[in-house]
């Protein structure tokens, strides 16, 4: 996985963002009027991992969170944890998390060194909804043996909440990049980035 060796700074960012995604899972779930499924802030953290620290580091920080969950820390919203969550029907969403973070990060990096909410929204929808739901629905169908259509029905209740999160993530990422510049323009793309600006 981490074939290009991570620097100390990369390791620090990866580990710290694992803490951020875990902390967002601790935020009490809120139930907007008219919704049947509580919205937790944890998948907001997954999108933010890609949108704030980029594709590779963001995906690795989500993988690290899943490793910590697997070794017995109750860091998923609920709080839930342990190996049991990987045998449950929601495993598709968990497997999809690092991929979603990677896609969000990859697209965000393509948007240039300055984070724009409009492009961020595109990145978050593609990674945080389309990619994530593809994995999630496939997971529900595979684990429970129901048809893909039925799995769609079982997961659509989460969609309104995730649509809200996609917007919140873009606004939060904009605020973070404004207050802490340099995260997107760094690394191997910086030379090209500078030449285009």
């Amino acid at each position: 996985m981490p074939a290009p060796r991570s620097t100390s700074r990369d390791l620090a960012l990866i580990a710290t963002f694992t803490g951020v995604v875990a902390a967002l899972g601790l935020v009490p779930a809120f139930l907007p009027p008219g919704f049947t499924v509580p919205i937790t802030a944890q998948s907001l953290g997954v999108i933010l991992a890609g949108a704030v620290i980029g594709a590779r580091r963001g995906a690795l920080s989500v993988v690290l969170l899943l490793v910590l969950v697997a070794v017995g820390l109750p860091l998923l919203a609920g709080p839930r944890g342990g190996l049991g969550v990987f045998a449950s029907p929601s495993v598709g969403f968990l497997v999809g998390w690092p991929v979603a973070a990677y896609v969000v990060g990859w697209l965000t990096e393509r948007g240039g060194a300055t984070y724009r909410v409009s492009w961020g929204l595109v990145a978050n929808v593609v990674g945080g909804i389309i990619v994530l739901y593809a994995f999630g629905i496939a997971g529900v169908a595979a684990v429970t043996g129901v048809s893909v259509e039925a799995a769609l029905v079982a997961t659509w209740v989460y969609l309104p909440g995730d649509a809200v999160k996609v917007v919140v993530a873009a606004v939060v990422a904009r605020g973070v990049h404004a207050a802490y510049p340099g995260l997107l323009g760094s690394g191997r793309r910086s030379a090209r980035e500078r030449s285009t600006v």
Partner: peptide
Amino acid sequence: LIALGIRCVPVVA
């Protein structure tokens, strides 16, 4: 990295 992650959870909390 795992040890750092375990440490970062309470720090960020």
